[in-house]
Design a protein around this nucleic acid. Structure first.
Lengths: 224, 224
DNA sequence: CTTGTCTACTTGTCTGAGGTGTTGCTACGG
DNA sequence: CCGTAGCAACACCTCAGACAAGTAGACAAG
C-alpha cells in the first residue's frame, strides 16, 4: 500500500514547475527566476530546486546556462510519445506489445544467432528463479522478452519495445501487488516453449505462443 | 560554434552513466552503486552525482527509492523517432509496419463502427481511381491503410503508423518512379478483400490478407 | 561608436550535517 | 526447526553555507 508514500520534494518541485510552464507563466525561450529566488518561493532548499531543474532538463523542457540562467526550451516536447503512453489504457499498451512481440518472435526464429539464443536461454533461467521481490520478477520477465525482440534484428521493433517498457512495468507491478496470480509455472512453461520454437526456427509456433501468452496477460490486466 | 563551451560536470557524469548502462554494466532492474561510491569513482562530488541521476530519472532511465538505492528502469532513453527511422533500412520499416498493421487489421475486424467501415470503403474507392501522379497514388493507398488502423481503436497503433508514414511514403515513391510494377489490379483486389474481411468481422482473414500484401511489398522494396 | 573594464547576478560544485526509509542480520520465543 | 521482533548498517533526501566560474549590463575611456 504505497498510497501514502511521500513524494520526494524534488519531484514535487519539478511537477509544480512543469505545471507553471504549461500554464504559460514563462513562454518558450523565457528565463526562469534564479534558483535563489525560486527556492524560497517553492519552500525548498536550493539543492532541491536544482535537482528539479535537472529532472526537467533531462526531459528537454529546461536548459540552464551557467552565469545566464535557466530557460524554457520546450513546452513539454516529449509530450508526443510519453504523453500518449501515459494517457493510454494499459490494455492499449499490451495490444501494441502484442503487435510488436508476436512479429518479433517470428523474425527471431528465422534470424537469431547462437549467441542470442544463449542470451534468451540465460534470461529464461533467471526468470525461473523464485523471488520475493515483485519488481525483480517483472524486470527478469522483461529481460527475457527483450532478448527475444533483440534477436529479431530489427532496431525499430527494439526501440518500440523499450518505449513500452516503463509503462508496462509500472502496471504489472501494481497489479501483482494488488492481487498477484500471474507468472506461475504454467506461465513459465509458455516462455520455455517460445524459446524452443525460436531455437527450432519455427516462426509460426513462436508467434502463436507469444500471442497466447500476451493475450492471457491482456485478459489478466483488464479483469475487474 | 560551441566548440569551446565547457560541459557541466553533472552533464558529463550523466553521459558517462548512460554509456555504462547502455554497455550493459547494469542490466534492467539492477541497482547502481551508492552515491557515495559513485562520486569518487566519477571524480565528482555527491551532489553532482545526484544531479546526474536526476537528469537520467527525468528521461526515465533511472529511478531512485529512498533507503533502497538507484535502479535501472530502461535500457535506453526514448530516442528521437525521426533519427531512428532515418537510420533504418526501408525493409526494417516495412517489417515494423507488418507488425502494426496485421494486428490492427485483426482488431479492426472486431471493433470497427459502421462509420469507420464507410470510411475504409470510401478510401478503397479513391484508391482504385487511375492516376498519372505517382505521389497521389501512394497517398491514396496510405489513406486506406490508415483508415484500417484507426478502426482498430488503439491510439498507440495509430500513432506508430503515422510515425512510419513519411519514411514509407518516400521509399515507395522512389521505387515506383524507378521501376513501377506495384499496385496493379491484383494489388487492388487484396485491399478489397481486406475490407470484406473487416466488414465480416473476420479478424483472422483480415490479418492474413494484410500480412500477405505487406510481405509482397517488402519483397518488392528489397528486390535488387 | 567602439572597446575595455568593472560589477552584480547566476549557475556550478563541494562539503558537512541531520533526517528518514529500506534491508538484512540476529536473537528470542514458539 | 521456524517465524518474528528488534536492531544496526546502509542508502537516499534535504538543507545550509561557501567558493568558483561564467554572463550580461553599466559605464567610462579612446
Amino acid at each position: 500500500m504505497d498510497q501514502v508514500r511521500r513524494e520526494p520534494l524534488a519531484d514535487q518541485a519539478a511537477r509544480l514547475l512543469l505545471e507553471r510552464i504549461r500554464a504559460g507563466e514563462w513562454s518558450l525561450g523565457a528565463k526562469l527566476p534564479g534558483e535563489t529566488t525560486l527556492a524560497p518561493q517553492l519552500g525548498v532548499g536550493r539543492s532541491t530546486v536544482r535537482e528539479a531543474i535537472r529532472q526537467l532538463a533531462g526531459r528537454g523542457v529546461l536548459a540552464s546556462r551557467q552565469g545566464a540562467g535557466v530557460f524554457v526550451t520546450a513546452l513539454d516536447a516529449p509530450e508526443d510519445w510519453d504523453a500518449v503512453l501515459r494517457r493510454a489504457d494499459i490494455v492499449t499498451v499490451v495490444e501494441a506489445r502484442i503487435a510488436i512481440e508476436v512479429e518479433a518472435a517470428a523474425l527471431a526464429a528465422e534470424r537469431r544467432t547462437p549467441a542470442e539464443l544463449r542470451a534468451i536461454r540465460r534470461a529464461l533461467d533467471l526468470r525461473g528463479e523464485r523471488r520475493a521481490n515483485i519488481e525483480e520478477h517483472v524486470d527478469a520477465d522483461t529481460v527475457f522478452h527483450r532478448a527475444v525482440v533483440v534477436a529479431a534484428h530489427n532496431p525499430i521493433l527494439t526501440e518500440l519495445f523499450d518505449g513500452f517498457t516503463p509503462r508496462s512495468r509500472a502496471s504489472m507491478i501494481d497489479m501483482l501487488r494488488l492481487r498477484g496470480g500471474f507468472g506461475g509455472d504454467a506461465d513459465h512453461d509458455v516462455h520455455a516453449r517460445v524459446l524452443t520454437a525460436i531455437a527450432d526456427g519455427d516462426g509460426r509456433a513462436a508467434a502463436d505462443l507469444s500471442r497466447t501468452h500476451l493475450l492471457a496477460m491482456k485478459r489478466w490486466l483488464s479483469a475487474p
